Computed example of a mutant assay.
Amino acid sequence: MALITASSCLKPQSSSISLKTNLKTNSELGFVTSQLSGLKISYDQCVAPINISTTINLPVQPVARRICPFTGKKSNTKNLVSHSNHKTKKLQFVNLQYKRVWWEAGKRYVKLRLSTKALKTIEKNGLDAVAKKAGIDLSKK
């Protein structure tokens, strides 16, 4: 069990301790016990409030999936068949490319990761029509 003692007198008028966990206060013994971590904090009457918080920030990184956002194309499974007719599973991935495409309505380039089939469709129908059909908002990118 950890014991933290504060003996400096910063604010004489306040003697409260605020914790973000579920606490039980025992005023006769003069300490506060946390139910979650077993942390015991001893305090005097002239100690400033102590704020203890436990926040864990995990790095969240976006996952680049192998799916075209415009056409919805994704990987296909195929069998590799050997001479002895032994079948082995293999993935056929979509031909995704990073491409800067001129967006006429926004008067700027938009960097997109799209399949070559979607690129041909954009050249034929226009970026606004294809993005509207796919439900993609180009103003965010």
Rank of each mutant, 00 (worst) to 15 (best):
M1R: 06
M1I: 03
A2Q: 01
A2L: 13
T5W: 01
A6D: 05
A6M: 05
A6N: 01
S7H: 03
S7D: 07
K11C: 13
Q13I: 12
Q13D: 10
S15E: 09
S16W: 06
I17H: 06
S18R: 09
N22I: 04
N22R: 08
N22F: 00
L23E: 04
T25Y: 15
N26G: 08
S27F: 09
S27C: 11
E28V: 13
L29G: 14
L29S: 15
G30P: 01
G30C: 07
F31T: 11
V32H: 00
V32N: 02
S37W: 02
G38I: 07
G38P: 00
L39T: 05
I41G: 00
Y43A: 13
Y43Q: 08
D44P: 04
Q45E: 14
V47E: 05
V47T: 07
A48Q: 05
A48E: 10
A48N: 09
I50L: 14
N51I: 03
I52C: 07
S53T: 08
T55P: 03
T55V: 13
I56E: 11
N57Q: 08
L58T: 12
V60T: 00
Q61P: 04
Q61R: 14
V63Q: 09
A64F: 12
R66H: 10
I67A: 15
I67E: 15
C68K: 05
C68S: 08
P69N: 06
P69S: 03
P69A: 04
F70M: 15
F70V: 00
F70E: 02
T71K: 02
K73Y: 07
K73R: 08
T77N: 13
T77H: 10
N79T: 11
S82N: 06
H83F: 10
S84E: 10
S84R: 12
N85Q: 14
H86T: 14
H86C: 03
H86I: 12
T88P: 01
K90L: 14
L91Q: 12
Q92N: 13
F93Q: 10
V94A: 08
L96A: 11
R100Q: 06
R100W: 06
R100N: 12
W103G: 02
W103Y: 07
E104W: 02
G106M: 00
Y109W: 12
K111N: 11
L112M: 15
L112Y: 05
R113G: 02
S115L: 14
A118Q: 05
A118F: 02
E123P: 03
K124Q: 13
K124M: 08
N125R: 14
G126D: 00
G126Y: 04
L127K: 11
L127F: 11
D128F: 02
D128E: 14
A129D: 08
V130M: 10
V130F: 07
A131P: 01
K132W: 00
K133Y: 09
A134S: 12
G135L: 06
I136L: 15
K140Y: 12
K141N: 11
